[in-house]
């Protein structure tokens, strides 16, 4: 497994629900690397079920049949459910933080407003803005903010929910 740019062709978007146990991430990444898959990106979050984590993996399965990554992951004992979302038009959502050295830069407020970014922190030397949305929105914002003397930025990999698949029953009170 190598970390590679996310635009690699043939990438699958796989969501994995795992039991939140020590070493579970290592098991997941080892399963992929052992099979020659490249992990392009990984987001980790909580899901609606207690004691479980949700992972969203973008995986280039290389020469292996595309279904292999999900099938092999599904065999891990700590894995509860695997869904290959690639063909399912999933709703993807990411978060970005943008650090500007000059809060008074010309046009900055207007650009922040245009993208719907929220100001998280403001001082004489810094404006920190947060933005969440589909990865394409964050990418467009990053490009636009670059001309506003952007000092630094970070962006999470997207989390996703499938429009089909995944859970079907409504979440009960206890679980939520």
């Amino acid at each position: 497994m190598t970390l590679a740019p996310p635009q690699a062709s043939g990438a699958r978007l796989i969501s994995v629900r795992v039991e939140d146990r020590p070493g579970v991430l290592q098991r997941v990444t080892n399963c992929l690397s052992r099979r020659g898959h490249r992990l392009l990106s990984c987001a980790v979050g909580e899901g609606s079920r207690q004691g479980e984590l949700c992972l969203w993996l973008r995986v280039d399965t290389g020469r292996q049949p595309p279904a292999q990554a999900a099938l092999q992951l599904a065999k891990l004992i700590d894995v509860v459910e695997v869904a290959d979302l690639t063909e399912e038009a999933p709703s993807e959502w990411a978060v970005g933080l943008f650090d500007f050295p000059d809060p008074r830069a010309k046009g900055l407020e207007r650009e922040l407003e245009r993208f719907g970014a929220q100001v998280v922190e403001r001082s004489a030397e810094r404006l920190l803005a947060a933005l969440s949305g589909p990865p394409q929105l964050l990418e467009a914002a990053r490009k636009a903010f670059t001309s506003m003397r952007l000092r630094d930025w970070v962006c999470s990999r997207p989390i996703a929910l499938a429009t089909t698949g995944g859970r079907h029953e409504p979440i009960t009170q206890e679980e939520g």
């Binding site: 292996q64 049949p65 292999q68 099938l71 092999q72 599904a74 065999k75």
Partner: peptide, 10 residues
């Protein structure tokens, strides 16, 4: 093992 199906021979 479902992962063995289609792994080499389709």
């Amino acid at each position: 093992d479902p992962a063995e199906l289609g792994k080499t021979v389709d």
